[in-house]
Computed example of a mutant assay.
Amino acid sequence: MSVTIKDIARLAGVSYSTVSKALNDSPLVQPTTKEKILKIARELSYQPNIAAKKLVSNKSKTIGVVWPTINRVALSTIVTMLNEEIEKSTYSMILSISKAEVAINMFKQFQVDGILVFESSHEIHNHSNTQIPITLIATSDSLYPSIDLRRGDAIYKAVEYLKSLGHRELAYIGHLRNDNDGQFEKYFGFTEALIRLGLNPRSEMFVNTEGLYADHGYQAMNKLLDSGYRPTAIVSGSYELTQGIIRATKEAGLRIPEDISLIGYDHIPQMGELEIPVTAVGVPSNLIAKTAVEMLFRYIDHPDEKPIVQRLEPEICIRETCRAIE
C-alpha cells in the first residue's frame, strides 16, 4: 500500500498541511520540523501523487524534457546538468527521447508545468496553442522562448584562434548536413571564418563525417590523411568526433599538438579528460543548463511575456592540443 501524507503526519506528530508545506520546501515550516518530516518521508520511500499535487497547488512540480539522445556525451552531460538545476527549485524532471510531438503529448497527460526541448522546433509548431510553457535549447524560434548557442560563432572563434597561432592550412571534420540546422551552422561558421580571415577556403579543407560518433571521426581523419592534404590544425565538430580524430592521428604516428593542432566543438568537462586534454569551443554546458532552466521558470511564472531568443556567447577553453607555428 502506498505511503500518504497522512502517514507522514501521524508519525511526525504534525498536521497534514505542515507535511505538505515541508515537502514543498515552504519557508513557513521550521527547519527542524522540516528535516524531521523529510527524514520520515525518505525512510518510508514516499512518492508524491502528481495529480493530487496539481489539485492542491495548481502545479505538478514536474518539468518535461524532450531530448534527441543520451548516447552522445555532450547531450548526456547537458541533460544531467538540467536535472540538477531543476532539482534546485524542488521540481522533478521527466525525460523523453521520443520524437518531440510524441513526448509533448505524453507530458500533457502528466500535466507538467513546463517543457524543455533540444532543437526540434519545426516538430512542435502544432503545439503552439498549448497552455504549457515551452522553452527551446540550441535553436532560435519566434514562437517560443529559445536559447541560441551560436554554434557558427563558436567555430569562427576556433579558426580565429588558430590563425592567431600562425595556422593557415586548416581542416574542418564534421557532419556536413544542410538539413540539420546545428551542424550546418558549424560548417557555415568555418567557411565564413576562412573567407573573412583571408584563409582561402578549398574543398579539401572540409571532411564530411556523415555522423557524429567516434568511429565517424576516426574514418574521416584517415580519409584526410590519405588525401595528401596535410593541414597544420583541425577543427572537430563534436566530442565524439574528437575522440576518433585523436585515435586515427595516433595510429598514423603523428603527435598532437607537435605535428597537428586540434580544437573540438562541445565545451564540456570531458574534453579535458581525454588522453590529451583538448582545447574546446562552445557555450559551457553548465551555462546552457542554468540559462535554460531559468528561462523556462520565468515563463512558467509569467506566461504572458513575449518570447525572446537569448543568444549565449561561445567560449574557448585552452588546453594542450594547440601550438603556435612560425
Rank of each mutant, 00 (worst) to 15 (best):
S15P: 00
S20W: 01
A22K: 06
N24W: 00
K34T: 01
K36G: 00
L38K: 13
N49S: 11
I63T: 13
V66K: 04
L82K: 15
K88C: 05
K88W: 08
K99D: 08
E101T: 09
N105W: 12
M106A: 14
F107K: 00
Q131D: 07
Q131H: 12
I137N: 05
Y161Q: 11
H167F: 11
R168A: 12
Y172L: 12
N180D: 14
F184C: 10
E185H: 03
F188N: 10
I195K: 14
I195W: 10
L197D: 10
L197M: 12
G198F: 11
N200V: 13
D226S: 14
G228R: 05
Y229T: 07
T232V: 05
V235A: 04
S238F: 05
S238N: 10
E240V: 01
E240T: 06
L241T: 09
I245V: 15
K250M: 10
A252P: 02
G253R: 13
E258I: 06
D259G: 11
S261G: 04
L274C: 12
E275T: 14
V281P: 07
P284Y: 01
P284N: 14
A292S: 14
A292R: 02
A292D: 07
D304S: 12
I308A: 04
I308F: 01
E315F: 02
I316R: 13
A324M: 07
